[in-house]
Design a protein around this nucleic acid. Structure first.
Lengths: 139, 139
DNA sequence: TTCCATGCAAAGGGTTTGCACTCTC
DNA sequence: GAGAGTGCAAACCCTTTGCATGGAA
């Protein structure tokens, strides 16, 4: 499968204050062409379709960098691996524990009421909602 | 620190249909004396205070078994390790991303409104809510 | 030339597995 | 003595690290 490219990647990196190297642009193209949920290894595989010399370490470095700049959100949902979500708008997730598939639940469909008052010295980072479901195994 | 023992452990295992071996009872004592959030390694360490010969593999096997019998809940919150929660009543979690500390948020304090209608063939397993906070570093 | 970024390989850490030994019924 | 349970060590997999090379200002 050929991944759709995303032309504005370099622009987007500059706006975030990240010097756009070839590798970072290639990773950004995979992530930001459309909203995706990908593990580091999946990102690596997709980038290597166009750039076979991409190294694993660079993918991990870059994902960490993008996260610090709030360009992606880290999803800790599957004990096996971390997923990166290129949709940073508030929304929630549905996780199929059988297949490992992740999908979005929009913030319109679901509301969290009564987030507790945080003790002094605690700063809210984010609220994750994960609806864990199990799909029927195929016949 | 000496862990408080829990007398009814063997009973509890039998009720769940689990043959109570010495090792399983020791693990149950650590988990069910009171509600705890522990990683597999933390369980191992606490059990070894009383039973130094306990093996890592047995802890992992037993935690998996307890989970299948719904005696503990697996918390996927920290990318570094899975936590096991011995409180199976509905409740949510607050996670300090700086220290890795986990604490409970009762289901009274917080409500999730509008859980989406699941497509046919999807069975709801559970809804996790994780409030990620960051505490101030100590002075 | 200096400094950051990259690539490679090895190390690290949590978890699982293979297999022989032990215990129980 | 059959079968489940246990212990040990090695294997596994995702992620991080060390370090030398490469490239841009």
């Amino acid at each position: 499968m050929v991944t759709t490219r995303f032309p504005g990647a370099a622009e987007r990196l500059r706006k975030a204050g990240i010097p756009p190297t070839r590798q970072r642009v290639a990773i950004a193209e995979v992530l930001f062409a459309r909203p995706v949920h990908l593990s580091a290894d999946q990102v690596l595989a997709r980038v290597r379709e166009h750039m076979p010399e991409m190294s694993r370490a660079t993918v991990y470095n870059t994902l960490k960098l993008f996260r610090e700049k709030n360009m992606v959100r880290e999803l800790v949902v599957d004990p096996e691996r971390v997923f990166y979500d290129s949709n940073t708008a508030p929304h929630y997730h549905l996780f199929d524990v059988r297949t490992g598939e992740l999908s979005d639940v929009s913030a319109d469909e679901l509301q969290v009421i009564g987030t507790p008052v945080l003790p002094a010295g605690l700063e809210l980072e984010e609220v994750d909602v994960i609806i864990r479901v199990r799909s029927r195994a195929p016949a």
